[in-house]
Protein backbone atom coordinates (compact mmCIF):
# COMPACT_ATOMS: atom_id res chain seq x y z
CA UNK A 1 0.00 0.00 0.00
CA UNK A 2 1.35 3.39 -0.93
CA UNK A 3 1.45 5.99 1.79
CA UNK A 4 0.77 9.57 0.86
CA UNK A 5 2.48 12.08 3.12
CA UNK A 6 0.31 15.07 3.89
CA UNK A 7 2.07 18.39 4.30
CA UNK A 8 1.80 19.71 7.82
CA UNK A 9 0.59 23.19 8.59
CA UNK A 10 4.17 24.25 9.31
CA UNK A 11 5.34 22.83 6.03
CA UNK A 12 2.63 24.70 4.15
CA UNK A 13 3.61 27.90 5.96
CA UNK A 14 7.24 27.30 5.05
CA UNK A 15 6.38 26.71 1.40
CA UNK A 16 4.16 29.77 1.17
CA UNK A 17 6.74 31.97 2.86
CA UNK A 18 9.63 30.83 0.67
CA UNK A 19 7.58 31.03 -2.53
CA UNK A 20 6.62 34.60 -1.67
CA UNK A 21 10.16 35.67 -0.78
CA UNK A 22 12.04 33.81 -3.50
CA UNK A 23 12.50 36.87 -5.77
CA UNK A 24 14.03 38.88 -2.91
CA UNK A 25 16.20 35.99 -1.77
CA UNK A 26 17.53 35.43 -5.28
CA UNK A 27 18.22 39.13 -5.68
CA UNK A 28 20.14 39.25 -2.41
CA UNK A 29 22.15 36.19 -3.38
CA UNK A 30 22.82 37.56 -6.87
CA UNK A 31 24.08 40.86 -5.49
CA UNK A 32 26.34 38.97 -3.11
CA UNK A 33 27.81 36.51 -5.60
CA UNK A 34 27.28 38.13 -9.01
CA UNK A 35 26.27 34.96 -10.84
CA UNK A 36 22.76 33.64 -11.46
CA UNK A 37 23.68 29.97 -11.14
CA UNK A 38 25.64 30.48 -7.94
CA UNK A 39 22.84 32.66 -6.60
CA UNK A 40 20.41 29.78 -7.16
CA UNK A 41 22.79 27.41 -5.38
CA UNK A 42 23.07 29.77 -2.43
CA UNK A 43 19.31 30.17 -2.17
CA UNK A 44 18.83 26.41 -2.42
CA UNK A 45 21.31 25.82 0.41
CA UNK A 46 19.73 28.59 2.46
CA UNK A 47 16.15 27.37 2.20
CA UNK A 48 17.26 23.80 2.89
CA UNK A 49 18.90 25.05 6.07
CA UNK A 50 15.82 27.11 6.85
CA UNK A 51 13.41 24.17 6.77
CA UNK A 52 14.45 22.45 10.02
CA UNK A 53 14.69 25.89 11.68
CA UNK A 54 11.38 27.10 10.32
CA UNK A 55 9.55 27.24 13.63
CA UNK A 56 12.29 29.41 15.12
CA UNK A 57 12.39 31.59 12.01
CA UNK A 58 8.61 31.98 11.92
CA UNK A 59 8.52 33.01 15.56
CA UNK A 60 11.49 35.35 15.28
CA UNK A 61 10.94 39.04 15.78
CA UNK A 62 11.84 39.61 12.14
CA UNK A 63 11.52 36.49 10.02
CA UNK A 64 12.91 38.21 6.92
CA UNK A 65 16.05 39.25 8.82
CA UNK A 66 16.46 35.70 10.15
CA UNK A 67 16.22 34.25 6.66
CA UNK A 68 18.47 36.92 5.20
CA UNK A 69 21.09 35.94 7.78
CA UNK A 70 20.96 32.36 6.54
CA UNK A 71 21.40 33.53 2.93
CA UNK A 72 24.40 35.71 3.84
CA UNK A 73 25.94 32.91 5.86
CA UNK A 74 25.40 30.44 3.04
CA UNK A 75 27.13 32.87 0.68
CA UNK A 76 30.12 33.36 2.99
CA UNK A 77 30.43 29.59 3.57
CA UNK A 78 30.15 28.88 -0.13
CA UNK A 79 32.69 31.60 -0.87
CA UNK A 80 35.21 30.01 1.46
CA UNK A 81 34.82 26.67 -0.30
CA UNK A 82 35.31 28.29 -3.69
CA UNK A 83 38.41 30.17 -2.62
CA UNK A 84 40.96 27.85 -4.21
CA UNK A 85 39.00 27.60 -7.44
CA UNK A 86 38.81 31.35 -7.71
CA UNK A 87 42.54 31.67 -7.40
CA UNK A 88 43.34 28.81 -9.70
CA UNK A 89 40.92 29.61 -12.46
CA UNK A 90 40.72 33.34 -12.02
CA UNK A 91 38.14 35.43 -13.80
CA UNK A 92 37.99 37.86 -16.60
CA UNK A 93 39.41 41.24 -15.72
CA UNK A 94 37.27 42.85 -18.36
CA UNK A 95 34.07 44.56 -17.38
CA UNK A 96 31.15 44.65 -19.76
CA UNK A 97 31.47 47.40 -22.32
CA UNK A 98 30.79 50.93 -21.16
CA UNK A 99 27.25 51.88 -21.92
CA UNK A 100 26.43 55.00 -23.79
CA UNK A 101 24.36 57.38 -21.74
CA UNK A 102 22.28 58.08 -24.79
CA UNK A 103 21.44 54.43 -25.28
CA UNK A 104 17.90 53.40 -24.57
CA UNK A 105 19.26 50.52 -22.51
CA UNK A 106 21.70 52.66 -20.58
CA UNK A 107 20.14 51.91 -17.21
CA UNK A 108 20.25 48.18 -17.77
CA UNK A 109 23.83 48.34 -19.05
CA UNK A 110 24.90 50.53 -16.17
CA UNK A 111 23.54 48.00 -13.74
CA UNK A 112 25.43 45.22 -15.52
CA UNK A 113 28.71 47.15 -15.35
CA UNK A 114 28.12 47.94 -11.71
CA UNK A 115 27.13 44.39 -10.87
CA UNK A 116 30.22 43.02 -12.62
CA UNK A 117 32.42 45.49 -10.77
CA UNK A 118 30.80 44.62 -7.46
CA UNK A 119 31.60 40.98 -8.11
CA UNK A 120 35.30 41.87 -8.15
CA UNK A 121 35.20 43.40 -4.69
CA UNK A 122 36.40 40.97 -1.96
CA UNK A 123 33.45 38.93 -0.62
CA UNK A 124 33.24 40.35 2.89
CA UNK A 125 33.54 43.93 1.68
CA UNK A 126 30.95 43.18 -1.00
CA UNK A 127 28.59 41.72 1.58
CA UNK A 128 28.89 44.85 3.69
CA UNK A 129 28.20 47.14 0.71
CA UNK A 130 25.20 45.10 -0.38
CA UNK A 131 23.68 44.82 3.07
CA UNK A 132 24.24 48.45 4.01
CA UNK A 133 23.43 50.27 0.81
CA UNK A 134 21.11 47.95 -1.07
CA UNK A 135 19.26 46.50 1.90
CA UNK A 136 19.58 49.61 4.09
CA UNK A 137 20.58 47.62 7.15
CA UNK A 138 22.07 49.47 10.12
CA UNK A 139 25.75 48.96 10.94
CA UNK A 140 24.98 46.84 14.01
CA UNK A 141 22.88 44.38 12.07
CA UNK A 142 25.46 44.12 9.28
CA UNK A 143 28.16 43.45 11.89
CA UNK A 144 26.12 40.58 13.27
CA UNK A 145 25.42 39.18 9.82
CA UNK A 146 29.01 39.12 8.60
CA UNK A 147 30.48 38.23 12.00
CA UNK A 148 32.61 41.22 12.88
CA UNK A 149 32.53 44.38 14.97
CA UNK A 150 30.76 47.60 14.02
CA UNK A 151 34.16 49.28 13.63
CA UNK A 152 35.14 46.57 11.16
CA UNK A 153 31.96 47.15 9.19
CA UNK A 154 32.92 50.81 8.79
CA UNK A 155 36.43 49.84 7.76
CA UNK A 156 35.10 47.24 5.32
CA UNK A 157 32.77 49.89 3.88
CA UNK A 158 35.65 52.26 3.19
CA UNK A 159 37.80 49.52 1.69
CA UNK A 160 34.92 48.07 -0.30
CA UNK A 161 34.04 51.44 -1.78
CA UNK A 162 37.70 52.05 -2.66
CA UNK A 163 37.91 48.61 -4.30
CA UNK A 164 34.72 49.25 -6.26
CA UNK A 165 36.03 52.58 -7.49
CA UNK A 166 39.34 50.99 -8.39
CA UNK A 167 37.60 48.34 -10.50
CA UNK A 168 35.32 50.85 -12.16
CA UNK A 169 38.16 53.29 -12.76
CA UNK A 170 37.04 56.38 -14.56
CA UNK A 171 33.65 54.79 -15.17
CA UNK A 172 32.67 55.60 -11.63
CA UNK A 173 32.32 59.23 -12.62
CA UNK A 174 31.61 58.88 -16.33
CA UNK A 175 29.10 56.11 -16.28
CA UNK A 176 27.55 56.25 -12.87
CA UNK A 177 27.28 60.00 -12.90
CA UNK A 178 28.99 60.44 -9.55
CA UNK A 179 31.56 63.05 -8.46
Amino acid sequence: MRTVRTASLEERQFTEYVAGRLPQLRRTALLLCGDHHRADDIVQIAITRLYPRWRRARDAQDTDAYVRAIVVRSFLNEQRRRWATVWLVGSSTELPSVPSLTSADADVDTREVLRAALDRVPPKQRAVLVLRFLHDLPVGEVAELVGCSEASVKSLTVRGLAALRRVLGSRASETMGTE
Partner: peptide
Amino acid sequence: LLAPLRDAGPIPGPAPGSSVSI
Protein backbone atom coordinates in the same frame (compact mmCIF):
# COMPACT_ATOMS: atom_id res chain seq x y z
CA LEU B 1 27.44 54.76 -6.54
CA LEU B 2 25.32 51.69 -5.86
CA ALA B 3 22.00 53.44 -6.47
CA PRO B 4 21.46 51.94 -9.97
CA LEU B 5 21.34 48.47 -8.40
CA ARG B 6 18.64 49.55 -5.97
CA ASP B 7 16.26 50.11 -8.84
CA ALA B 8 16.75 46.68 -10.32
CA GLY B 9 13.95 45.19 -8.23
CA PRO B 10 13.63 41.58 -7.22
CA ILE B 11 14.42 38.78 -9.63
CA PRO B 12 11.21 37.06 -10.62
CA GLY B 13 11.24 33.49 -9.59
CA PRO B 14 11.32 30.67 -9.81
CA ALA B 15 12.06 31.71 -13.39
CA PRO B 16 12.56 29.38 -16.30
CA GLY B 17 16.04 27.95 -15.92
CA SER B 18 16.20 28.62 -12.20
CA SER B 19 17.42 25.61 -10.30
CA VAL B 20 15.82 26.64 -7.00
CA SER B 21 13.27 24.09 -5.84
CA ILE B 22 11.25 24.54 -2.69
